[in-house]
């Protein structure tokens, strides 16, 4: 499908409009004040224009996040579309920032904007990248942790798209469990 915008200038519309968010850690401010909406886009061409103008994931300072969410969903547990959901979490080793992070994050973004999870794409809320000294993390957030068919389908497709070895296990954690945990360990609800 194409939007006619004149000869040679067609843009390809996406199924959803997406919002890109940036989080920069400043301990003197409350969490929400460190979260900034960068821009929104709804075509393939605009996605690439934005992607080529912002810093690569591997160039961000530790403590920064990128988040890409469907327009109307805020990248936080409290949003009504996230509250009962959870995330497929990919935790990277420190050395993967240089070797793998940019490729894995781009692949995650392409899964989202291309609606790679077919009819279960409806369940996808967004994706979050955390750049951290102790190891970076990438996650796809979905809206209903109890929706096992959707969650497991998304997990299987996502793992395949990332090109992870079958030996690597990734886990899905409910936000409700992450929010109430008493230590850094959150139990996996599903694994693929």
């Amino acid at each position: 499908r194409k939007l006619p915008l004149g000869e040679g200038l067609e843009k390809h519309p996406l199924e959803n409009r997406w919002a890109l968010w940036f989080f920069k850690n400043d301990r003197n401010r409350v969490w929400q004040d460190n979260l900034h909406l960068v821009t929104k886009f709804e075509t393939v061409e605009d996605f690439w224009a934005i992607h080529s103008h912002i810093k690569l994931a591997s160039k961000l300072s530790s403590g920064c996040d990128y988040a890409l969410f469907k327009d109307g969903i805020e990248p936080m547990w409290e949003d009504s579309r996230n509250k009962h959901g959870g995330r497929w979490l990919v935790s990277l080793a420190k050395q993967q920032r240089q070797s793998n992070l940019d490729r894995l994050w781009l692949e995650t973004l392409l899964c989202l904007i291309g609606e790679a999870f077919e009819e279960y794409s409806e369940e996808v809320c967004g994706a979050v990248l955390n750049v951290r000294t102790k190891g970076d993390k990438i996650a796809i957030w979905t809206s209903e942790a109890e929706n096992q068919p959707a969650v497991t389908f998304i997990g299987r497709v996502y793992k395949e798209r990332l090109g992870l070895s079958p030996k690597v296990i990734i886990g899905y954690q409910a936000h409700a469990d992450t929010a109430t945990k008493s230590n850094s360990f959150t139990k996996n609800k599903f694994v693929v």
């Binding site: 996406l14 199924e15 393939v44 690439w48 692949e107 392409l110 291309g114």
Partner: peptide, 18 residues
């Protein structure tokens, strides 16, 4: 049934088109 799905190959081609 009218969801707009783009595969990886198509999205990557769009990156390189003028």
């Amino acid at each position: 049934g009218t969801r707009i799905i783009y595969d990886r190959k198509f999205l990557m081609e769009c990156r390189n088109s003028p």
